[in-house]
Computed example of a mutant assay.
Amino acid sequence: MSEDSSSSRLSSRGQDKSWLDKLMSSFSAEPKSREDLLNIIKEAAANQLLDDEAVGMIEGAIDVQERQVREVMIPRSQMVVIKADEGPSDFLPTIIESAHSRFPVVGDSMDDIKGILLAKDLLPLILNGTDGFSLDHIIRPASIIPESKRLNVLLREFRENRYHMALVIDEYGAIAGLVTIEDVLEKIVGEIEDETDEDDDGYVRKVSDSEYVIKALMPIEEFNEEFEAGFDESEVDTIGGILIRAFGHLPTRNEVTEIDNHIFRVLYADSRQIHLIRLTLPE
């Protein structure tokens, strides 16, 4: 090995050591604020001691300490729930269509939380059938938390108590929404997608040649173009609005109506709006 090569390598090591020493001395100086700490981390990244992904996760972990549940929760209007008095034939379509793994079980209202249903606990139905089935026997206790709870505290509780979903209440004790461990982790590592996630920009999912699941917020203009329909665009803007006008009221799940030979079945609706619809095209 040449002396020049050895000198170059030693020089490089010396620079690395210098940067490590500088980084360690910066930490030993005890940063006085969040901004001081972030500046140290960004300086380390600028000198290639950390990559962008690592910096993003560190910043996310720091940010979680200052955020509250209300900032990441799924709002009440978007919750997919199961009613305690429903049978498998009633709630299984909802579970299948939503592709979620956990569902709040409610009584007479959204504020009457009975527990949490895990989709995997329904697997025995495949072998045993529905004879003698009761939701009361398989639902699990629900964790109720205030919307002001800090995310870092909630994440610790998720880990320690080994649960993945919590119901969120507002200052008056009413259900404001729900939050999952995934919602919290996404604030640290970024968006987590799996095989059941749908494109947020897409309104239509094909089920068969004649059946589709569509979002009620789909603009009528796009619906007409997609399905070669001729629905009136003058009075309402979305296909959900067309359905409410056809029903004459805000429909509930499984209500069916036919418009110009197009059959619509409501898959998911709450007390405010329709969310998801199954469309059967005319033959």
Results as ranks from 00 to 15, higher is better:
24 M>S: 15
25 S>I: 15
25 S>Y: 15
28 S>L: 14
28 S>I: 09
28 S>W: 10
30 E>G: 13
30 E>M: 12
31 P>Q: 09
31 P>N: 07
32 K>Y: 08
32 K>E: 14
33 S>K: 12
33 S>W: 11
35 E>G: 15
36 D>C: 07
37 L>A: 13
37 L>T: 10
37 L>P: 13
39 N>D: 11
39 N>A: 13
42 K>M: 14
42 K>T: 14
42 K>P: 14
43 E>K: 14
44 A>K: 12
44 A>P: 08
44 A>I: 14
44 A>Y: 09
45 A>I: 15
45 A>Y: 06
46 A>S: 13
46 A>E: 15
49 L>S: 05
49 L>F: 15
52 D>A: 14
53 E>A: 14
54 A>V: 15
54 A>N: 15
54 A>W: 15
54 A>T: 15
54 A>K: 15
55 V>T: 10
55 V>P: 02
57 M>E: 10
58 I>F: 11
58 I>C: 05
59 E>C: 08
60 G>F: 10
60 G>N: 08
60 G>S: 07
61 A>S: 12
62 I>A: 03
62 I>Q: 03
64 V>F: 09
65 Q>K: 12
65 Q>P: 09
66 E>H: 12
67 R>K: 09
69 V>N: 04
70 R>K: 08
71 E>V: 11
71 E>M: 09
72 V>D: 03
73 M>L: 11
73 M>E: 04
73 M>Q: 05
74 I>N: 00
74 I>K: 01
74 I>H: 01
75 P>V: 00
75 P>Y: 03
77 S>H: 11
77 S>C: 09
79 M>N: 02
80 V>L: 06
83 K>E: 07
83 K>Y: 09
83 K>R: 12
83 K>V: 01
84 A>S: 09
84 A>E: 10
84 A>C: 07
88 P>K: 02
88 P>H: 00
88 P>V: 04
88 P>T: 05
89 S>Y: 04
89 S>D: 10
89 S>W: 03
89 S>I: 11
90 D>N: 04
91 F>C: 02
92 L>S: 07
93 P>E: 00
94 T>C: 01
95 I>P: 00
95 I>Q: 01
95 I>L: 04
96 I>R: 10
97 E>A: 09
98 S>I: 03
99 A>I: 01
99 A>Y: 01
101 S>A: 03
102 R>A: 02
102 R>C: 00
103 F>G: 00
104 P>A: 05
105 V>M: 00
105 V>A: 01
106 V>F: 02
106 V>A: 00
108 D>W: 08
108 D>G: 05
109 S>K: 04
110 M>D: 05
110 M>R: 09
111 D>K: 07
116 I>H: 02
116 I>N: 04
117 L>R: 06
117 L>Y: 07
117 L>I: 00
118 L>M: 11
119 A>I: 04
121 D>C: 03
122 L>R: 01
122 L>V: 07
122 L>F: 05
123 L>N: 10
123 L>M: 10
123 L>F: 07
124 P>R: 06
124 P>G: 10
125 L>E: 06
125 L>D: 03
126 I>P: 14
126 I>N: 11
127 L>N: 11
127 L>P: 06
128 N>K: 10
130 T>D: 06
130 T>R: 03
130 T>W: 00
131 D>N: 13
131 D>L: 09
133 F>V: 12
